[in-house]
Simulated assay, not measured.
Amino acid sequence: MGDKVRVAAVQAEPVWLDIDGTTNKTIDLIAEAASGGAGLVAFPETWIPGYPVFLWSYPVYEQMEFVARYHANSPTLDGDHLRRIREAARRHSITVVLGFSEKDAGSLYISQAVIGPDGEILLHRRKLKPTHAERTLFGESDGSGIKVIDTPLGRIGALNCFEHIQPLTKYAMYAQNEQIHVAGWPCLGILGNVPALSPETLMACTQTYALEGSAFVVAATQIMSDDGARKFPTADGGPTPVYTGGGGYARVYGPHSGLITEPLDPTTEGIVYADIDLAEIDLAKNTVDPAGHYARADVTRLVFDDRPQKPVIRPSELDPQEFQDLGMDADQENDTSHR
């Protein structure tokens, strides 16, 4: 594993509610990042087909048209749109961290996929708990998605949006010795005047993650143009009422918490690059390592269940302890299965 790598963070506007258009744009941005020398390129939360701004804009009964279009334009993990993006990653030999609305049968999930330079999916995760109004559209996940993986670039992990203010979720990530973290954010130009949702607050969360985790944090964000705001129109055709303009804050923070990229204008599309040296992490952790030498396990500890949880399980999938919890044993299951 090399210690140095160039990372790239996307700041761009999706083709709102258009799976084909945004997939094409994704492939173009992958090529651009690769031509810029990046070994990893990060995309925002729900980049495909764009963040569902309508959830925050209108009463539920006025959202139905948008909900139908959003379902129709959300990709599946094994579908053609992800296949094309995986092929682009392989063609350009670059690691891609993609945020997308994942359609799984009749449900949607706020998902991220880490796609390796060979086009293989190295990590597929779903947002542990959608935030506030998002819960009317998206399902929840489980602890199996709170994961850091080994790659030739380093140990990579990813979270979406307000997962970055969940102390225990963050701690579970820190404890896995994460080195490169991708922070997927939506457009920060909606509800930007609300203090808790302001760009300043959300970037402070991102910077704090770098400080606490002693990790390089690659933050990718969507932007929204005036035309984009009219993709979610009011009754008279005006822009969505929650639009506050721009919203692009792509950047990279170092493990010492310092900003190591020059910010783009919040209304401008582009890619920011940073050349990072993983050796800097050792110096950062020498000062504070909250899940390492700076921890006090005798006082506070995290119980972290990272097992996948399914709504339907069959007896053949249970382990012996789970059989006992159900008042059965494996022999009973075997006897039953032969009757």
Score class of each variant (00 low, 15 high):
G2T: 14
D3V: 09
V15I: 12
W16T: 00
D18P: 01
D18M: 09
G21M: 10
K25P: 03
D28K: 11
D28G: 02
D28E: 11
I30L: 03
A31G: 09
A33I: 03
A33K: 02
A33C: 05
G36I: 07
L40R: 08
F43I: 11
E45T: 15
G50K: 06
Y51Q: 03
F54D: 05
L55A: 09
P59M: 09
V60Y: 08
Y61L: 10
E62R: 14
M64F: 11
R69C: 07
Y70A: 06
S74G: 12
T76M: 14
L77H: 08
L77C: 02
G79P: 15
G79V: 12
R84M: 15
I85W: 01
R86Q: 15
R86A: 13
R86K: 15
A88S: 15
A88R: 01
A89S: 14
H92F: 14
H92I: 13
S93V: 13
S93G: 08
I94K: 00
G99M: 11
G99Y: 07
S107R: 15
S111F: 06
A113N: 08
G116C: 11
H124Y: 12
K127T: 14
K129C: 06
K129S: 13
E134R: 10
R135K: 15
R135N: 12
F138K: 06
S141D: 13
S141V: 08
G143N: 06
D150F: 04
T151Q: 10
T151W: 11
T151K: 09
P152G: 11
G154V: 06
I156L: 14
L159H: 08
N160F: 05
C161K: 00
E163F: 05
H164N: 12
T169R: 12
T169Y: 12
T169C: 03
Y171V: 00
A172W: 01
N177W: 12
N177M: 11
Q179K: 11
Q179L: 09
P186S: 05
I190C: 00
I190T: 07
G192C: 06
N193V: 06
A196N: 06
A196Q: 10
L197S: 02
E200Q: 06
M203E: 03
A204L: 11
Y209H: 14
L211C: 03
E212T: 05
G213W: 03
S214A: 15
V218I: 15
Q222H: 04
I223P: 00
I223M: 01
M224I: 14
D226Q: 13
T234D: 07
D236G: 04
G238H: 07
T240F: 07
V242K: 04
G246C: 03
P255C: 09
S257R: 07
L264A: 02
T267I: 00
T267N: 07
T267C: 03
E269Q: 12
I271N: 02
Y273A: 03
A274T: 01
A274D: 04
A274H: 01
I276T: 02
E280W: 05
D282T: 12
D282G: 09
A284G: 14
K285C: 06
K285V: 01
N286Y: 11
A291F: 08
Y294K: 05
D298G: 10
T300V: 14
V303D: 09
R307M: 12
Q309P: 00
V312E: 12
P315F: 07
D319F: 11
D319Q: 14
D319R: 14
D325T: 15
A330P: 03
Q332Y: 03
E333Y: 13
